[in-house]
Computed example of a mutant assay.
Amino acid sequence: MSPSASPAVRTGIPWLPGVAVAAVAAAVAWGVHWLVPAVPLLTAAVVLGIVVGQLPAARAAVTGVLAPGLSLSAKRLMRIGVVLLGLKLSLGDIASLGWVTILTTIGIVVLGFAGTFAIGRLFRLPGHQPLLIATGFSICGASAIGAMSGVVKPKDEEAATPVALVTLCGTLAIFVLPLLWHPLGLTPLQFGHWVGGGVHDVGQVVATAQIAGSGALAVALVVKLTRVLMLAPTVAIAAVGERRRHVAGDPSVKRPPIVPLFVAGFIAAVLIRSFIPLPAVVTDGADALQTALLAVALFGLGTAVRLRSLVGTGWRALATGLLSWALIAALALVAVRLSA
């Protein structure tokens, strides 16, 4: 061990420096959100990670002493955050939308996922990028990408590009969709429905829908969380595909579980919230912890983004992201019209 190694590394806790830096960054992102509420906390965390990842002075630390902790943040802490995300979901709230809205919301996810995946394949994106972009854009942004990454085990750069794209498009939605609200002739509740069906991250949904009032925000959140519920079956299906691929390749290689543990935890959290009365202190505490964990995790994911590589070779990924954004927004608008 090098004598210049950090105390955490020397004492056998190599992940501590990276997790500590990610936690500090999450606090900074929270400060940005507090000062500028229009900037969602999780978006600020991803953007901060992307910025740090581009700094020459920080790159050696990001790929060196901080790497174990940033990796743990982006993977394990992300999975814990996804489990806690299930406590936001109540099957009763979803049922209150009505069957037309529920079915059209599922349609947004299914058609958006299939369309985005097809676009990614058409542009010949490498590795797991089509799958990760489709997951992030159709379900719940960077947290969905992190959840899917836990199953398919992509290279860091394969996951980093989809995170950058979903952050870019979700941030654009905060400013673009309100400009289209009145020209499209939508009522405030219809606008909330559109935002919930067409915007990626929960924080971005809140930032976009709140301008139309509390009723629009409530509808947006329930529609959005209905999309989040689709994360469990989507990841489970991907896990089955990975198992089959491992069997076809090398049967001796350890296969991923059919239902990953964190997905089972997510489903359990949804059922707990739906059928067991929880005091506000529990749900509020879980919500705060989930947000903090995802902020730490998304900073870690953001540090893996290399904008130079994205600009130099990623035009196809950028085109895929923009087309997917337009596709899902159009599907969400159709869903609003059908539910009217």
Rank of each mutant, 00 (worst) to 15 (best):
I94E: 00
I94G: 02
I94H: 00
A95S: 09
A95Y: 10
A95P: 04
S96G: 13
G98K: 07
G98W: 12
V100A: 13
V100D: 04
V100L: 11
V100T: 15
L103D: 09
T104Y: 02
T104K: 06
T104V: 11
T105G: 15
I106W: 13
I106Q: 11
I106C: 14
I106V: 15
I106G: 12
I106R: 03
G107K: 12
I108C: 15
I108W: 02
V109T: 06
V109E: 07
L111F: 13
L111W: 01
G112L: 06
G112V: 10
F113C: 06
A114Y: 09
A114C: 15
G115S: 10
G115Y: 02
T116N: 09
T116F: 09
T116E: 05
F117G: 01
F117Y: 13
F117W: 13
F117I: 01
A118R: 14
A118M: 12
A118I: 00
I119V: 13
I119P: 00
G120E: 10
G120S: 05
R121H: 12
L122T: 15
L122V: 14
F123T: 04
F123W: 12
R124S: 11
R124N: 09
R124P: 13
L125D: 02
P126A: 12
G127N: 01
G127P: 05
G127W: 07
H128T: 11
H128Q: 14
